[in-house]
């Protein structure tokens, strides 16, 4: 859990640690967002890194984390459009500092932003699995391997695969708080086929 005002306060005091915290908090989300515009991963990573540099240059101007977040997203969007050679007139700083400003007004950007944040949130659940549980989960759910194939691939017994699957299921079930999500049923299914 981060504390929003602490983050802003740290930026105002020029603390690099706060920049790093912002990076950890937003880097993946901004990358997910940027790849909604441009498909080249390396370009998206460069653009997002630039957004953090621009953010740092203006670090004294953000009154709240909400404005900081909006700035990062708008910067990234503009850079993506530039990359696609589409004209951009908007100055992100001017936009967010305007009291009338409401990111939700821009349907396209807002949709992409919520989408990115949602995917990051869903993926966080998967990241709670241990590495081995995740490996088993991926091989079954994403690659469609059978238990025997997974056990061969990992060089462990079928029982160990079952054990890790049981743990992965238990954890995902707990986080998704219900029993019939596509994720869970898919995981069950791949282990029964």
């Amino acid at each position: 859990m981060h504390n929003a005002s602490l983050l802003i306060d740290g930026l105002h005091k020029n603390k690099e640690q706060s920049l790093i915290a912002v990076y950890r908090l937003y880097n993946r989300k901004l990358l997910l967002f940027a790849t909604r515009y441009i498909k080249v991963r390396e370009a998206a990573e460069e653009i997002v890194a630039d957004s953090f540099i621009k953010m740092w240059k203006n670090r004294h101007l953000f009154p709240s984390e909400e404005k900081l977040q909006a700035f990062l997203y708008i910067c990234t969007k503009n850079a993506c459009l530039n990359y696609l050679r589409k004209p951009v007139l908007e100055d992100p700083l001017e936009s967010i500092l305007n009291t009338e400003f409401d990111l939700a007004q821009d349907v396209d950007v807002y949709t992409k932003m919520v989408h990115a944040e949602l995917i990051a949130a869903i993926y966080q659940e998967v990241e709670k699995l241990s590495e081995r549980q995740r490996a088993v989960f991926y091989m079954s759910f994403l690659e469609g391997l059978t238990v025997e194939e997974i056990s061969q691939r990992l060089g462990v017994s079928v029982d160990v695969v079952y054990a890790n699957r049981s743990r992965a299921l238990a954890i995902l079930r707990a986080h998704f708080k219900f029993n019939n999500s596509a994720l869970i049923s898919a995981l069950l299914y791949t282990f029964l086929s």
């Binding site: 081995r132 490996a135 060089g155 017994s157 029982d159 079952y162 699957r165 299921l169």
Partner: peptide, 11 residues
């Protein structure tokens, strides 16, 4: 992929 786990389980 190569850590040992002392677990054995069937579901």
């Amino acid at each position: 992929l190569c850590m040992g786990i002392g677990g054995y389980f069937l579901y």
